[in-house]
């Protein structure tokens, strides 16, 4: 039996919205540790890893490890039927072929349940090692989303260059070029607006903007995004979900033509 209750049900909807454009079908892994998913996009260019710890739920029960294969698009459609302030409960039997989503309105006046059929999905699990990155930038997630969107009007790729003073995002295209530099600054009153650069050595890597724009769909999950880079390694774009876990995206840098 798997049962998980989340007062802020809307969190799961935001998570689905941040994954469904990249991944069609995937397995949610339920264990006593929590609720997790690892999946590559269909072209195997990027990897998503999301994790919600069991202690972040209001109630969490998982008697046996369970892998729930779902169409993310269909699960997102169901979660769209949940009210913004609804409490969400997920339930699945150990040997069952479906998962039930129950939505309770805050005043308990409306209770609905939606059942989603599960699918058998063959998924390849990759081991993600802990890495010390050359540079890690923490910045407002909305700022990162805006930069990726704005630069997409000019080019297809972005060069992200980190120095101790700031992080520069650059692109070029047929119509011209663009640069946006974000400088590190702290704000005691508004920590969500600060830019923190933790740099061991300068690093500059090029990435496909199309993927970064997909990652930025996670912006509603967190005020801040953490971008970690090392030479010739995939970038990690991580959104922390307060008191619960994170969603992290991995993307390999482009090699110069």
């Amino acid at each position: 039996m798997f049962e998980a209750r989340l007062t802020q049900g809307v969190l799961l909807r935001k998570l689905l919205d941040s994954m469904k454009d990249l991944v069609q079908d995937a397995n949610f892994d339920c264990s006593s540790t929590g609720f997790a998913l690892q999946a590559m996009d269909s072209s195997h260019v990027s990897l998503i890893h999301m994790q919600l710890r069991s202690d972040g739920f209001d109630h969490f029960r998982c008697d046996r490890n369970l892998s729930m294969g779902v169409s993310l698009n269909n699960m997102a459609k169901i979660l769209k039927c949940m009210g913004n302030d609804d409490v969400l409960t997920m339930k699945a039997e150990d040997q069952g072929d479906s998962v039930t989503f129950m939505f309770e309105s805050a005043n308990q006046e409306r209770i609905s349940d939606f059942e989603l059929k599960l699918m058998d999905i063959d998924s390849e699990q990759l081991g993600i090692p802990d890495t010390d990155y050359s540079a890690t930038v923490k910045m407002p997630s909305a700022e990162f989303a805006r930069i990726c969107k704005d630069l997409s009007t000019i080019g297809d790729t972005v060069l992200i260059a980190v120095t101790k003073d700031g992080v520069r995002f650059s692109t070029t295209g047929d119509i011209g070029s663009a640069n946006v530099t974000v400088r590190s600054h702290s704000n005691v009153d508004k920590p969500e607006e600060q830019v923190v650069i933790d740099m061991q050595e300068p690093v500059a890597l090029t990435f496909a903007l199309r993927y970064l724009n997909s990652f930025a769909k996670a912006t509603p999950l967190s005020n801040q995004v953490m971008i970690s880079m090392s030479k010739e390694l995939p970038v990690v774009v991580q959104y922390r979900i307060e008191d619960m876990g994170h969603i992290s995206y991995y993307l390999a840098p482009k090699i110069e033509d």
Partner: peptide
């Protein structure tokens, strides 16, 4: 995508 490496080559299979 030209010049784009896949992600699998960076991580070991579990």
């Amino acid at each position: 995508l030209p010049g784009q490496r896949g992600i699998k080559s960076f991580f070991a299979k579990k």
